[in-house]
Nucleic acid binder design. Structure first.
Lengths: 136, 136
DNA sequence: ATGAAATTGAAAATCATTTTTGATTTCAAT
DNA sequence: ATTGAAATCAAAAATGATTTTCAATTTCAT
């Protein structure tokens, strides 16, 4: 795998926005603002690679219809943690808690299923959004 | 909301395939085989309604790129349960287990997040697929 | 039976993503 | 440094799932 300016820039852009998730288009636009033009095709290709690496998560079907991506750290360091996404505001929270291990183990031992923490995303409502919209 | 033949047939088709998930196209084709032609537009519209009702789940980004739907029971009876999907074979399992409540409560009390069991899907590997492909 | 409101569905539009293709870049070997 | 094969890039065209439009049809409360 060759190292290219494009790969570096795309990864850098995602890292720079580590708190948010971005669509391929947004990354494209953001890079343009910094004077760097990279083909959308390349951005899609590279995002796929980052997701496979485990360096980014891919979100489909959030409030919008466009797929978005978020940086979650270099391939190695992502321990066993999950992500919570608010269905209203889209805010993402990292869930790092000892309960994960016991839960994962239970699912594995009692239900014969190996959870994938990278592909699984918990959807729901964050505290502030849950207040606004009364329980349904 | 008016009752129509189309609504009935689409729901019936999903129920008839309760174990699997189907794309809009597959439903369209399946109905055709039974001699019923219903516009794709209508099928999409109706599927959205079923999902909002909580009578069906919508899956995006499984192995494929097409969205698929699965019947999960009438609006009322879907208690607090989750769904496990195997990333390899696509098999869906219902997770009804007391651990859900304690897990949900923990997330709510300790992490201020209200999980939505309809929107959240656990991805991973079922027992038989996990065997075939050694742990990665 | 009547008609307003809801629904249907064909055709056209949308739009994110993928494919194609040919040019360009990387980097290991010389 | 030069070379060249493998990898990568990116514009344009294609794809294909989903949505929108809108006129015709159907439902059901009155």
């Amino acid at each position: 795998m060759y190292n290219t300016r494009q790969k570096a820039m795309i990864a850098a852009c995602l890292k720079a926005h580590a708190g948010e998730h971005m669509t391929a288009d947004q990354i494209h636009a953001s890079l343009l603002q910094n004077g760097t033009h990279i083909g959308l095709t390349t951005i899609y290709r590279e995002l796929d690679r980052l997701v496979n690496d485990g360096s980014a998560i891919k979100y489909t079907g959030l409030n919008t219809n466009a797929t978005s991506y978020q940086y979650i750290g270099d391939a190695k360091e992502h321990g066993n943690h999950y992500h919570l996404i608010c269905l209203d505001c889209g805010q993402l929270t990292h869930l790092s808690c000892s309960i994960i291990e016991s839960f994962t183990r239970h699912i594995e031992e009692e239900h014969s299923f190996l959870l994938n923490s990278q592909k699984t995303v918990f959807y729901g409502h964050c505290a502030s959004c849950a207040e606004k919209a009364p329980a349904k």
